[in-house]
Design a protein around this nucleic acid. Structure first.
Lengths: 245, 245
DNA sequence: ATTTCAATGTGTTAATTTAACACCACAAAC
DNA sequence: GTTTGTGGTGTTAAATTAACACATTGAAAT
């Protein structure tokens, strides 16, 4: 469906009628809160803005909705354009609409959050020359309402992590128990008991222990695990099983 | 902040610069999922559309975002205009952006859900001549993606009801334990054990039992309770207490 | 006056879940 | 062969949740 520009309206007789033509229009943006995990810490990806307004300040990556795409597509496109990444877990978070949130022009922004494994995905260097990973607590101050967005994203991530197996989006395919626990400790921002954690994870019965060790992590090495997506799906369908950590 | 029309852009030199002027604009709507409770059943408020497109079909109440208001204000205004109600619990739900979701014109819609007590709030009759409360399972089929919105709203309401004391927004100030339980059973769509429910509610210690009975409800009558908002707030602040039902 | 009825109100116990807790094993470095 | 850092493993107490049944009330019907 076309959105005729205002100038086109009068000549728009053979197209779909425009029932709402006297209503105000607005600029719609998407901003992406990108969480990453580097086997130890939870991080977010920020860029230094290279355009006005607020050029040179740190911000979330973002872009504008185009007339021929929906918001999910816009968020995916923005993420892909700036990082080269595709096939990433993304979820709509909240829509921000304060009148003066963007001094450049009245803009409504739909925030998305994304989860990626820092180590497995190498970015195309050109696209991210001004991008950097920041530890959650060490992030610089950001433009507009981007910090508010991040706070909400963290809260959402926490809730999701407790009830859905999205944590695995942040890990490489093979991971150690300790890495998984580190991830959850980062997300929840609290220490967990090692034995209770393992017991709990094992009771969910959706991990497969490999006959393979990660030797980089200690003298002794640590067994690697993979998340069994199929088994998880089957459980959800059959027993109405739900991931609760 | 003004949003200049496209036609104004060339003359817009004394105003704020428009950095993003070549970007597409879009029409932004808000739609409200209004939940009500009539002491027995959970209901939603729908209206028969009296304008094109889809005139005569049932829909959520909705309206367009104006350039001088944010989305929360738009949702509040829409609700107030159509029902006369103000001071209502509202919460942003999700933003819908499928390209052809509204055949009238490409429109992005931000859904809000609202909670009101059916009996305490009498509507101004004129504004709602075409509005009706429907039982959740008896709702007619709706225009656009409004049914999808309702499904999401129900899911959100369920989650909220388990962790925040928003249920009380749906009840009159004074209510019986049975009404409270009916409400939760409606929201969760399952039967709860009477004694366990009361034990749980009492253990939260945020209700005050009045020396007053609702005699309409049975021969014997049932004690009335009120939710002690102050006590609740104090608990949240002091002990980090969280409402968990 | 007695009975009926429909709804209220009230506690205990078993089952499950969660939380607390400590020691040995291994392999590399020295 | 001793030290060192990390991995790996079970049990018990505490807290929470779930299951469960019967007496009370007061109006209405007889």
């Amino acid at each position: 469906m076309e959105i005729p520009k205002e100038a086109d309206l009068s000549t728009d007789i053979n197209q779909q009628l425009n029932f709402y033509q006297k209503e105000d229009q607005a600029l719609l943006a998407v901003d992406c809160i990108i969480f990453g995990f580097d086997k130890t810490n939870l991080k977010i990806l920020l860029i230094k803005r290279n355009f006005e307004p607020e050029k040179g300040k740190w911000s979330l990556i973002g872009g504008f909705l185009k007339k021929n795409e929906n918001l999910d597509q816009a968020a995916t496109r923005v993420l892909n354009t700036l990082t080269g990444l595709s096939d990433i877990y993304m979820e709509q978070l909240y829509t921000y609409s304060k009148l003066d949130r963007d001094p450049g022009q009245r803009t409504i922004s739909v925030a998305y959050f994304a989860l990626i494994d820092v180590d497995s995905h190498q970015f195309d260097g050109i696209q991210i020359e001004s991008a950097r990973w920041f530890d959650l607590n060490e992030a610089p101050s950001l433009i507009f309402d981007h910090e508010e967005m991040i706070q909400k994203a963290i809260a959402r991530l926490r809730r999701r992590a407790m009830t859905m197996p999205i944590g695995f989006e942040l890990l490489p395919e093979k991971f150690t128990m300790r890495q998984l626990q580190n991830l959850y400790e980062s997300i929840l921002d609290k220490k967990l008991d090692k034995r209770n954690f393992i017991n709990k994870v094992n009771s969910l019965d959706v991990l497969v222990k490999l006959n393979e060790k990660d030797m980089t992590v200690s003298r002794k090495g640590a067994y690697l695990f993979v998340f069994d997506k199929e088994k998880y799906k089957k459980k959800v369908e059959e027993d109405g099983f739900s991931f609760k950590l």
